[in-house]
Design a protein around this nucleic acid. Structure first.
Length: 389
DNA sequence: AGTACCGGGTTCTGCCATAAGG
DNA sequence: CCTTATGGCAGAACCCGGTACT
């Protein structure tokens, strides 16, 4: 496999190096020259100065602090986050900075990364190169990875287990999550790749077992569908996902068929709602619908047609429903065409006012006009006005 | 031409608790 | 004991347009 070839090449080319924090303030960003040259140069330099600093017991390493300051790191933030790192004798802040710089990260980005996840400076050059290449086996270019690190340094640096990362990639591949979905997964939920293989496997097995218990035919396709629809599912706890599924099954009295189709389509998204939010939103929706004259069957229909409704907070949802009902829409029409609830109450109000001023007949024409894109809605309004004159 | 259906885009991290390791 | 690694949590919408169908 290509992955393994890359990995072994790297082992040949790069030695691990951890430097003692030096005294001098030599320029940090000497150059973006090939990293191997820079590494060996620095290695010789630091070997010569190795005995220079010996931090006192339990206190912070002064020369390390100096180095970090030169790099522009926010020491207060770093200290608050991972105080132990600042006491270490052997760290690789310069190697890390040069490494990231060679991948195209700016000085500001590097400083921000270290400030937010100080432990990054404990990783050796060899380790970094290896991990980077594993990520590169999924992305086409370095820039994409830099963007993710800038967004979430922890995702890349929290685990030092490259072997586990490699196993995760192979595992996800083996599930049939292929070339298009893997980058999506790593971009949107990078933490998935730092999870232990076991944790990911447990979630996948949970999903598969749910499929089996619902009498599904293809449990692998089921899990795949949920993951590719909801890339965040693998960073949720099985406790949460299980609780949400059980809650939906019992509170809606879903048949096996209904449940299977709900969970692997738009219902996949609501599985990672916090359990209390899901219950709260569910309860609020039920109370509200009942006040508008709906029965359980209509509630169920609404959720099956548009599970995202459970994502909306009680406040917003009630606002939208009130707005529609006040605008002359029958709640039963909403149950049939729940997509209108996608739109903000401000937009809905505006559209209802526009349409009502033209005497638009919702009973005869339905409410589909409300959930058009702005462009389409405006074109439609134009036609209606013309027709009227 | 108009409509219905469907899926896509945005960015979901940063903090805390606890287990594991030394 | 301290540090590191890992798991878990809260928070919670809105809009656009391709395409198949009629």
């Amino acid at each position: 496999m290509a992955l393994q070839q890359i990995t072994s090449l790297l082992r040949i080319h790069h030695r691990a190096f951890l430097q003692p924090s030096p005294l001098t303030a030599a320029p940090i960003f000497i150059t973006a020259a090939p990293i191997s040259i820079t590494i060996s140069t620095l290695h010789r330099f630091f070997s010569a100065t190795r005995t220079a600093t010996a931090p006192l017991n339990g206190s912070e390493n002064i020369s390390l602090l100096e180095n970090l300051t030169i790099l522009g790191v926010d020491l207060k933030k770093a200290r608050q986050r991972q105080p132990g790192v600042l006491r270490k004798v052997l760290t690789n802040e310069r190697g890390l900075a040069e490494f990231l710089s060679s991948k195209g990260a700016s000085r500001e980005v590097i400083a921000s990364i270290i400030s937010r996840f100080p432990r990054a400076i404990t990783r050796s050059g060899e380790h970094l190169e290896e991990r980077w290449q594993l990520w590169r086996s999924i992305f086409q270019d370095d820039a994409e990875i830099v963007r993710i690190l800038d967004r979430s340094p922890e995702s890349f640096f929290r685990s030092s287990d490259n072997e586990n990362l490699e196993k995760n990639i192979l595992f996800l591949n083996s599930l049939g999550i292929m070339h298009r979905d893997l980058p999506k997964l790593l971009t949107k939920a990078p933490r998935v790749f730092s999870n232990s293989l076991e944790l990911n496997r447990t979630m996948v097995e949970l999903l598969q077992s749910i499929c089996v218990s619902l009498g599904g035919k293809d449990h692998e396709a089921f899990a795949r569908a949920i993951i590719s629809r909801n890339v965040y599912i693998l960073i949720r706890s099985t406790k949460r996902v299980k609780a949400n599924i059980e809650f939906l099954l019992t509170s809606l009295k879903l048949s096996d068929t209904e449940a299977l189709s709900l969970f692997q389509s738009h219902g996949a998204d609501i599985l990672d709602l916090s359990h209390t939010s899901l219950k709260r939103n569910f309860k609020n929706l039920w109370v509200k619908l009942r006040s508008l004259g709906c029965r359980k069957a209509e509630m169920k229909k609404l959720v099956l047609n548009y599970a995202q409704v459970l994502f909306v907070s009680p406040e917003r949802l009630n606002e939208k429903l009130d707005c529609l009902v006040e605008g002359g829409i029958d709640v039963r029409q909403i149950v049939e065409k729940p997509k209108v609830l996608d739109f903000s109450s401000v937009t809905l109000k505006q559209r209802l006012d526009d349409l009502n001023s033209l005497g638009y007949n919702f009973d005869a024409n339905g409410i589909a006009i409300l959930d058009m894109s702005k462009k389409r809605f405006d074109a439609k309004m134009e036609k209606l006005r013309e027709f009227r004159h």
